[in-house]
Design a protein around this nucleic acid. Sequence first.
DNA 1: CTGAAAGCGCTTACAG
DNA 2: CTGAAAGCGCTTACAG
Lengths: 344, 344
Amino acid sequence: MTEHAGTLGRRERATMRDVAALAGVGVKTVSRVFNDVPTVAPELVERVRAAAEKLGYRPNLTAASLRRADRRTHTIGLLLEDVSNPYSSALHRAVEDYAREHNTFVLAASLDDDPQRERELARQLIDRRVDGIIVMPVGKDHRYVVGEQQAGTSFVFVDRLATPLVADAVIADNVAGARRATEHLLATGRRRIAYVGDDLAIPTAEQRFLGYGQALASAGVQPDPDLVVHGLRTAEQARTAVIELLRTGGVQGLFTSQNLVTIGAVEALHELGLQYQVALVGFDEIPLAAVVQPGVSVIAQDPAALGRAAARRLFERMAGDTGPPAVETIPTRLVVRGSGELPL
Amino acid sequence: MTEHAGTLGRRERATMRDVAALAGVGVKTVSRVFNDVPTVAPELVERVRAAAEKLGYRPNLTAASLRRADRRTHTIGLLLEDVSNPYSSALHRAVEDYAREHNTFVLAASLDDDPQRERELARQLIDRRVDGIIVMPVGKDHRYVVGEQQAGTSFVFVDRLATPLVADAVIADNVAGARRATEHLLATGRRRIAYVGDDLAIPTAEQRFLGYGQALASAGVQPDPDLVVHGLRTAEQARTAVIELLRTGGVQGLFTSQNLVTIGAVEALHELGLQYQVALVGFDEIPLAAVVQPGVSVIAQDPAALGRAAARRLFERMAGDTGPPAVETIPTRLVVRGSGELPL
DNA sequence: CTGAAAGCGCTTACAG
DNA sequence: CTGAAAGCGCTTACAG
C-alpha cells in the first residue's frame, strides 16, 4: 500500500468523531473544547487540542449552525448595485468592518439595477440561511420582504427606501443635497442649469431631480425640459449626452446626479474646452476631483457612514429589536473646489 | 389565543417535513420536486409546489450540502487587499460574474496587508466549508494551504504568487510592465528617474522595482538610492513623499508603483506646478487619468481578466483537476496620455 | 466534569 | 414512481 497524499490529492476532512476517537474522549468533550466551555479538565483539553492539531481538524460551522439553538450562520448578505462601483464598495467595506467585529462574514453580490435579480439573489441568500440582509434596492415592490422577516431573516435597506416601508433604511439626504448643489450653481448668477442624471426610476435619482426642481422653483427659474437628461447608466453615456447637450448651446451650468455621470460630464467639458465656462456640481465624491482643473465641486455623500449605520441597524434587528421600521438619514456636504463657483 | 404575526414578529421557517405533511406526501418527494427530479407524478409536483408556496417554504442549502455526496456549499471565498480598492473591486466583480454562472456566491473579505489576517480569514472560510478560495496573498509562507487542499478545499492565488508555489496563480506581468514604463520615461532623454512605491515586502512591489532597475541598467543609467522611495501605503503618504522628493531637485521623471501612489504623485505635481516638467508613468489605471492635464500615462493592468482567469482556474480545480500548480500571466499595456512623454 | 442518545433539515441508499 | 430508515457533523437535553 502506498500513500496517496500527492500535492493536490484528496483525503477526507477529519470530523469531531475522528478527533474524539484519537483523543479517547466523547464527541461532546471535543465540542466543549472547541466552544471554549470552561468546565473541561485541563488534561482532556490538552489531549483534544493535540488530536485536532494532528488531524488538521477544523469545526464545521454549517453543521453547527444547523443544530444550534440560535441557528446563526454568522454570515450576512449584502446586495449592492455593483461591488466594483466606488460608492458601493466603500459602503461594502464599512459593512465588512462592522460585521467582522461581530464575527460575521459578508456574502456580497451585484444587482446591476435589475429588480428580478434583487428578488432572486435575496432568495438565494435566504436559501443559504444568512442571518440578515442589507440591500441597496432596485425593485419597486418590497412586500416579499415581510414573509422573510417573519421567518427570522432581518432586512435593512440602504441608499434607497423599501416600498412600502417594510424595513429599516439608511439613506443620504438626497433632496437637500441636490437642492444645495443647484442653489450653489444659481448663486453665481446662472439660470440655465441642466440636470444630467441616471434612470429616473431609481429612487435616489428621483429625489435628486426633485431637489434640483425645488431649487429652481425657489429661485423663480422656469424649468426647461430641454435642459434635462435622464437614463444615463455609464460614464460613457453621460459623456456623449453632455456633449450633445452643450452643442445645443445656452447651458450655463450642470448638476450631475451621481459619480459616473459626473465623470462623463467632466470628460465632455474638457473635450469641448468648456470646463471654465460651464459650471458643474456633481452628486457623490469622485477620485482626483481636486486635481482636475478646475477642481470638481461635489455634494459628498459618506458611503462608509451609510454602511456602518446599516450594519449597526441590522445587528440590532438580529439581536431581537422588533420596533417599527425606522429611517436614518445621513447628511451630505458641499465640497467647493472651483467648478461650481466659476464666475459667469 | 391571538395570532402573533406582527410586522416584525417571528415565526418558524417551514421545513421540508411541513411541506410534505401539508401535501400529503413523503419528504423524499418534496426533495425530488425541489431538485427537479423528473420522475415525480405531475399531480404530486403540483401539490408539493402549492404546499410550499402556502408555507413560504425555502430549501435549506446548508443542510442539503451537509448530506449531499459532493458536499458543495456553492460558496467560494475571496480574500482581497481591500474590497473598496478599485483594483480589488474590479477583480471581485469579475469573480462574482464567473461564480454566478456556476450558481455560486462569493464571501469576500479584506486583508489590509496583514498576514495574520490572511491565515485567520482563510481558516474562517474553511470553517464555513466554502468550495474554494481565491486569495490575493499577503503572507510570505503559504504552506498552510497544502493541508487544506488535501482536505478538499481548492486554492487559487491572484495578483501575487504563493510562496512556495503550492497553488495555481494568476498574476500580471509586473516586471515587464515596470520595465516598459521606465523605458518609456528614458525614451524622452530623461536619466534621473525616481521610483516611488509601495512596501517592498509586497511581491508585486518587489517585481515592479526589479523591472525599473532592469530598464535603468539596460540604458546604462547608474541607479541612485536618493531617487527611490518605498513603503507608501496611501495616496496621502505618496503625495507627501513626492513633494519631499521633488524639493531635493533634479528629478526628471517618476515611475509610481501602483494606483494610490500614482494618485498621490499627481496631486503633488499639481500642487508644485511641476506637472509639465516632471514626467510620470504609473502602474495601474486610475480614474480620470485622461481628464487631468496632462493626461496620466499608465501601465494598465486588467483586473477583470485576472479575476476571470482566477475564477476559471478555481472552478477547474473544484471540478477535479489535480495537475501541478500553474501560473498564468496576464499582460499589461502602456497607455500613452501625455504625462510620460513630456519633452525634456 | 463527562458522554450516550436524539435531532437540526436535508440527501443517500434501499426496498417496494 | 414513492417513501421509511439511516446518516451528514454538529449541539441540545439529559443522565450519571
